[in-house]
Each structure stands twice: as structure tokens, then as C-alpha cells.
Amino acid sequence: MRNLLFEIAYQGTRYHGYQVQENALSVAQVLQDAIEAVTGSRDDITGCSRTDTGVHANSFYFNMKTESRIPEDRFPIALNHALPPDIAVKRCQEVPMEFHARYHCLRKEYLYRIWNSEIRSPFLDGLVSEYKYPLDLPCLQKATQDFVGTYDFRAFCAAGGKEMETVRTIYETSICREEGDMVCFRVSGDGFLYHMVRIMVGTLLEINEGKIPPDSIREIIEQRDRTLAGRTAKPQGLYLNRVEYGDEWFGKTV
């Protein structure tokens, strides 16, 4: 028996999130179908996170305990032959048996991509959130810094979230125009609540629209009232961008 860690990337447009659903197609289901086709066994897989319907991942990890003897360097090639074009296995490595892709994650970074133009891009359909109004990026960048720290982010958690503990630590945030009409919001933390990043983005957009004062984020956090924060931004622009684990599992950070 081996415990294997896989890094994957996927376009979430046609999936109802990562987690297996009873009556909807998920990333995990498609992965398990491919694993069964390659190994002959439908092994359980453990993902590093639960992404929502339509959300994407540039870097996502899952681990799997398996009897398969396929070499680590050959496993990605074999699985990619069995997977659809919108999911790709980037690499595979053996990890200690006690390793858990979700519980041993130290830090995650999310990226939210906004196509800031009155003209939509036909090449980015489903891959960005469209916003046609001018963005006051210096103002928004200043506002994002009020998310940094350890707080109870209950006001930034959507109804339906199952988390009992709503305290999270945000390490870094930024929003900037990266190229042409593409604006990106980045946020890293030790974990995120249900729809938390999308509510952060929706709050920033309402600050931009003058609906929420730019210096009110800390007050919203302190009030712990979801109705004070902004709307939930669309899922299409959201990407799980980076996942970090400790040196003790690998000899280096993944």
C-alpha cells in the first residue's frame, strides 16, 4: 500500500465543484473514473479543498492510498490519457501514510480574475468575471489590507456553510491590473469559509460602486453580520491558485 499525492489543474466550468455529488458531475467523480480505468480499482481520494460549482484550480492536490504499482513518474501520463481535456494531472509523488491533503495544508492562495471592459472576450467565457465599470484600484488595494490578520470572518461566510469555527488568518491580499483589461485579486490564508473569497470580491466591487464605505471592512468583520458585507461575486473568476504543505512531509514545500 502506498499513499500518493497528486497535483492537478482543472477548468471547473462544467463541474458542480470538486466534491462528489449525488446527482451532478464533479471533479472528484471524473478523477475516480479515470483512476479506476487505469488501475482497475476505485480507490478513495482526499482533496485539499472543496471548490464550488464553476470554480477552477491552477493547483489542486489530492492524496490516494492504493495498491497500484504504477511508478510515480508514469501515473500522470496514464491518468491524463483517461481524463477529459479540462482536467490535467501535473505530477505525483509518494508521501507518508499518515499524510492528509486537506488537514495538513498550511496555506492556500486564491486568485479572482476580473475582465474589466465594456467589451466581453469570447476567449475567456466562463473563465473570468466580467465587470464593465472603471475600477479605482488604489482605493481597493488600500481596502484589501483590512482583511489581513486573524479575525472571525462570519460576515464573509454564506448561509449554508458547515464550518462551526469561523476564525481564519489572512496573510496577504492584493488587487491590481495585471495585463490590459485583466484585473486580479489575490488572497492567501490558512483556510477559507464557504464563499468567503467571492464575498470579499463582492464587497470590494460595492466599495468601488460607492455602496459600502472604503474604510468599513474592519467594522463589517467586527459586526459579524453577513448583511453588512457585499454581494457574492460570480464563481467563474475564482481559481484555487496555490497550496502549501510543511517541509516535514516532503523535505521541501510542495
Rank of each mutant, 00 (worst) to 15 (best):
G161W: 13
Y103I: 02
V89I: 15
E118D: 07
D146C: 01
N80V: 06
C139D: 08
T169Q: 06
F99A: 03
F123N: 05
L106E: 13
S117D: 11
N80Q: 06
H81S: 15
T144K: 00
R120C: 00
S129C: 13
C92W: 05
N80G: 04
Q93Y: 05
Y110H: 13
A155M: 04
Y151C: 06
L79W: 10
V167A: 08
L137W: 10
K108A: 12
T66N: 02
T150W: 03
T150S: 11
Y112F: 15
S117C: 14
Q145E: 14
L106S: 10
C139F: 13
K132Y: 14
L140Y: 13
V148W: 00
E118F: 04
T173W: 04
R154Q: 11
I114T: 00
Y103L: 08
Y171D: 02
K108D: 06
P85F: 10
G160T: 07
Y110D: 12
C157H: 12
A101I: 11
M164W: 09
Q93G: 00
P96T: 02
L79H: 02
Y133L: 13
S174Y: 00
G126C: 06
F99E: 01
S68A: 08
E163G: 00
C105P: 03
L106Q: 14
R91F: 03
K162S: 01
L83Q: 07
E98I: 02
P134T: 02
V167S: 06
R113W: 14
Q93N: 02
A143P: 02
Y151N: 15
A155P: 11
V167T: 15
G149P: 03
A78V: 06
F156A: 10
L137C: 05
R177Y: 04
R113M: 11
T144C: 14
Y131K: 08
P96M: 03
I175S: 04
V95Y: 00
C105A: 15
Y112V: 14
E165D: 15
H81R: 13
E67P: 00
N116T: 14
P138Y: 08
F156G: 12
S121M: 03
E118I: 06
P138F: 07
L124G: 05
Y171M: 01
V95H: 04
Q145N: 04
W115I: 10
T169P: 00
L140H: 13
G149K: 05
R69P: 01
Y131D: 10
R177G: 04
D146H: 09
C157E: 12
P85G: 05
S117V: 13
P134L: 04
C176W: 05
E172D: 07
A82K: 13
I87E: 11
W115K: 05
S117A: 07
C157V: 03
L83W: 13
I77T: 10
H104D: 14
A155S: 14
S68D: 01
G126Q: 12
R102Y: 13
E72Q: 11
